[in-house]
Design a protein around this nucleic acid. Sequence first.
DNA 1: CGCCGATTAGTCAAGCTTGACTAATTTGAG
DNA 2: CTCAAATTAGTCAAGCTTGACTAATCGGCG
Lengths: 174, 174
Amino acid sequence: MDERALLLLGMLRAQSQHGYQINEFIERNLSRVTDMKKPTAYAILDRLSRDGYVRMHTEQEGNRPPRKVYSITPKGEQAFEDLLRATLARSDRFSAPGDIGLMFLTHLPRAEAIALLEQRMEDLATQRASYERAPRHDYDLGARLAIERILLHMETERGWLTGAIATLRDTPEQ
Amino acid sequence: MDERALLLLGMLRAQSQHGYQINEFIERNLSRVTDMKKPTAYAILDRLSRDGYVRMHTEQEGNRPPRKVYSITPKGEQAFEDLLRATLARSDRFSAPGDIGLMFLTHLPRAEAIALLEQRMEDLATQRASYERAPRHDYDLGARLAIERILLHMETERGWLTGAIATLRDTPEQ
DNA sequence: CGCCGATTAGTCAAGCTTGACTAATTTGAG
DNA sequence: CTCAAATTAGTCAAGCTTGACTAATCGGCG
């Protein structure tokens, strides 16, 4: 039971929803927050249902294909709160992903390493621009704090990249 | 083919190794950089072997259980470089993980939310201390840059958490 | 020497994740 | 009205990941 379950339980706490609705919302509005794919969401909902955290019943509107409607149970509400507390209380380890590449940085010619980090800086700028376009109001306090957080880390990353490139320029190869 | 393959290819580029050796090194020295588990490493090595990026042959020393020794092939060296370039050139998306919890922050009483974020700050401080204990020399340039990077982000996170807690204190509930 | 815990080396089954697919219904252009 | 494209709703098989396990050897203490 992880963050993905927390997200699904949180969405169902707000209102009962059918699978498609849930996945649409995630794809349209939460693509920055999670990369959970549709079949994963269905799988987790199945598990949550099997374990009694959500109830599932099928509904048929007109003669469209039947929908699976999920609602949270009291046990699910409890689990949501517990998970939320656990999640908020701990700081997850900072991204290793980019670092493995860094470990091998010195295996490339210095000039190329610099060029690649400059590309990384552009990539970062693009991502950042997309975040800055996000309307800051509309969102509730939690979401605003989350956006603020990401932007601060992006600025830190930009600063670090600038420094790293300078270090590479100043340090003799080998 | 992802960062885990990059790591394994990079390790084999330095020298041929048997499975146990690889996994020992990862567990002892790279636990901060990757959370790849032993069976995963074997599975990836199998795939790399199947696809011609590494060669695998079994060796028997004395009458100990046979070892699988992996060496990188020229095709593997090429793949390593390509992967390394691709990895260095892009900035991976900043951690969503912690953010899902934040999205639901306002579902808890304000006082509890504050207490939880204070716990998160302590957790962060613990992690940070463990990084600061890491000997800065010994490591090559790439690794030093990677450590520097994590420490900067940890400081940013501390600052953000301080601000977030202050905001929560100043913003009236609801 | 005998035996127990640690080390060496790896395997397996169960669960998780996702790209690709199915299949029906609605919409809209001509 | 009609046909193609888009939308709705979900499924499936294949691959990935890992906790738990096996099984042999080695080191050292009494």
